[in-house]
Amino acid sequence: MSTTSPSLGRMSPPLVAPRVTQIVAKTLLWAATALTVGVLVFIVAFVLRRGLPYVTGDFLTEAPRDMGRAGGILPMIVGTLYVTAVAVAVATPLGLGTAIYLTEYTRGGFLTRVVRFGAECLAGVPSIIFGLFGFVFFVITLGMGWSVLAGGLTLAFMILPTVIRTAEEAVKSVPPQYREVAYTLGASKWQAIVKVVLPSALPGILTGIILGIGRSLSETAAVIFTAGSSLKMPVSLFDPARTMSVHFYLLAREGISMPKAYATAAVLVLAILVINATAYGLMHRFMKRFS
C-alpha cells in the first residue's frame, strides 16, 4: 500500500464547502451505479422477455429444421452438455492437482510464482486465440477433426485458470489445524489431503468448476473453430457439434430467424444465471464456514 499523504496544497480552503462537494459526488456515484446495474439488468430482462414466449416444450426437444428457421435446439443442448462435460472432466483434475501442489507441497517460493503467473497469463489469452490454437493443434495436428473432443479440450484449457485459482483459494482456506489433527491420528500427508482437506474445501472447488461450466456455455469463438457448427446430433466424442452459443451467433448474425435467435438466447441466459447463482451461493456458504 502506498502511504502518500494528501499534499498540503490541497488543504487550502476549498471554493465549495466540503459537505456540498460530498453531496454532489455521492449523487453522481450512485447515479453511475444505478445506470450500470440498470443496463445489465435491462439486457437480461430484454432477452428473457423477447425470448421466453418462444421457448416451448417442442423447442427444447426437437431438432432444428431448415437451417434453424423452424424446429428446436435439442442437438445444440446435447452438444453444449457434451462439450462442457469434456472440458470439466479434463480441467478439474489438472486444476485441482495444481492447487493441491501449490498449497500443500510448496508454500510460496519461486515455483508458485511461476505457476501463478502462467495461470494469470492463460486467463488473459483471448478466446479467439484458444480457438486458433485448438484448430491447429487438436483439429489438424492431432487429427481429431471438428469434434466434441477437440472443442471440449480447447475449452478445458480455457477454463483451467479459473479452476486453479478457485481451487487454490478453497484449499488454502482450510484451517491448518485440520491437517494437524489428521497427522496426529496417524494419517499420511496424502491421506490427510484426500480425507480431510479436500472434503472441507469441496464447496469452494465446486464453485470454480461451476464458474468454468458457465464460461464454457457462453463461449463462442473458441468452440466454433474446434467443435464445428454441424446441425446434426452428436453421438460419439469424434462427432462435430454446434453449441447453443454458436447456434445463437449464427442465427443472429446471418439473420436466419429472429424468434429462434431470441429463444435460444433466453435459454442460454437462463442457464447461465442459474449456474452462476449456484456458484455464488456455494461460495457464500463456503466463505461463511471458514470465517
Partner: peptide, 10 residues
C-alpha cells in the same frame, strides 16, 4: 457478478 456471465454474443 451474476451478470458478468452473460455470453458475449448476447
Amino acid at each position: 457478478e451474476l451478470l458478468a456471465g452473460i455470453p458475449s454474443v448476447v
